[in-house]
Simulated scan of single mutants.
Amino acid sequence: MDHDLPPLRLLTAFAAVVRTGSVQAAAAELNVTQPAISQAVRKLEDHIGLALLDRGSRPARPTEAGIALAATTTESLSKIADLLDRMRQAEGARAQTVTVACSVGVATYWLMPRLSLFYRAHPDLLVNVVTTQSGAPALADGADVAIRYGHGRWSDGDVHHLFDEAVEPVCAPSLRARFEGPVPREAAPLLHVRTSDASWLSWAEYLARTGQPRMHGGGQSFTNYVQTTQAALEGHGMMLGWRSITGALVASGALVSAGLAVLRPKDAFYLALRAKRTGEATERFAHWLRSHARAEYKPD
């Protein structure tokens, strides 16, 4: 069926003749010669096998078939123009949007509180946030960047160091107030996060790496860090506080240090970007995030 369609330039020329009322006016509008317009109309008539202009009148008037074809051509070209305009607008909107993937805890306690600062510096951009349970979310379809915790040796994108982490037990002020010194581990329930993420630090690993006796069992378990943090805020026990997530809560006094050892893991937080198809919005967001992290987490 496509082979039956006449060339678009012939349709455009004929539609201009009908719209302007004459070959002369169409030629002026399209900035071509009158013979070129006349030739285009004749080729179009030959192609479809119908007369489109009544050349017995002066000036030549469109036939009934010509009127129908010109109307359909004009309507179709208008729809194409509208579609192209919407496509350009959509592409422009995408160019001003960046989608970042991160864990629920990082999104809730680290990224979201800082986005207001980003919007002040870049009011023309929009950041979409996709959360996962994992500390190292993949650069799946739809994600331009990912904030990850881990070893940093990933090969699915360009990886940039954001900041190092520090982990220490924290609890509600009411729990800490019950003891004169550090909170005894055996005196407070331990709050655990159940995860398959190999990079996540468990209580058993924390105790082993800080040279403390291992404890067996006890405490509550949760499926994500946000739930665990809420339990700690309500005074239900002692949790491992990751500076990136509970740091603001400690700074505000909502949580306090339990007075136990601080552990600085070898793993760190990184920003992973797609190796290809990174637009201006993504580049600006990544640059701001890295600069902000460097300023906020200066070496001790």
Rank of each mutant, 00 (worst) to 15 (best):
R178A: 14
H3C: 08
G157V: 00
A27T: 00
P62N: 06
Q89D: 11
G259T: 05
S196D: 15
L5N: 10
Y206N: 06
S244V: 03
H3P: 12
T246R: 00
L190E: 06
L126Q: 11
M215S: 09
T73G: 03
Q24S: 15
A136R: 03
G66M: 05
L263R: 10
L162A: 02
R264D: 06
H47P: 03
R148H: 01
L289S: 01
T132W: 10
H292M: 13
G237L: 03
T195S: 15
K43S: 11
L207D: 10
A51S: 12
L115T: 04
G49A: 04
R148E: 01
A232G: 02
E180Y: 10
P299K: 06
T282F: 01
I80V: 15
T229R: 04
G21Y: 04
R274E: 02
A187N: 08
N224G: 03
P123A: 05
Y297V: 04
R120Y: 08
A138F: 07
D85K: 15
E234Q: 11
A187L: 10
A51P: 01
L139P: 00
R61Y: 03
S22K: 06
R194E: 14
T72M: 11
P265M: 02
T108L: 09
L249V: 05
E29K: 13
S196A: 15
A36R: 12
G259W: 02
A13N: 05
D156C: 02
S252F: 07
S38C: 07
S134E: 07
T63Q: 07
S57F: 10
R284C: 03
R185V: 14
S252N: 06
E64P: 00
I48D: 04
A93R: 14
A275Y: 04
Q133V: 08
E165Y: 01
D267Y: 05
T99E: 02
Q220L: 13
M1T: 12
I37L: 04
P59K: 06
Q212N: 09
H151M: 08
R94G: 04
S38P: 01
L8C: 09
R114F: 01
R86Y: 10
E64A: 12
S202L: 06
H47G: 06
R290M: 13
H161L: 12
Q212M: 13
H192A: 08
R55G: 02
S174T: 15
G56D: 09
V130T: 11
A248L: 08
Q24Y: 14
P137C: 05
A172L: 03
P62F: 02
A136N: 03
Y119E: 11
K266L: 12
K79E: 12
V127L: 05
Y206C: 07
P182N: 10
R178E: 15
A40P: 01
P299R: 06
V41N: 00
T246L: 02
F222Y: 13
G157H: 01
A166R: 11
T99L: 03
A70C: 07
E234A: 10
S116I: 11
T228Q: 08
A107R: 01
E283A: 09
V130M: 10
V193F: 13
L115Q: 02
S22G: 07
V183C: 13
L10V: 01
V41Y: 03
R290I: 13
A204R: 14
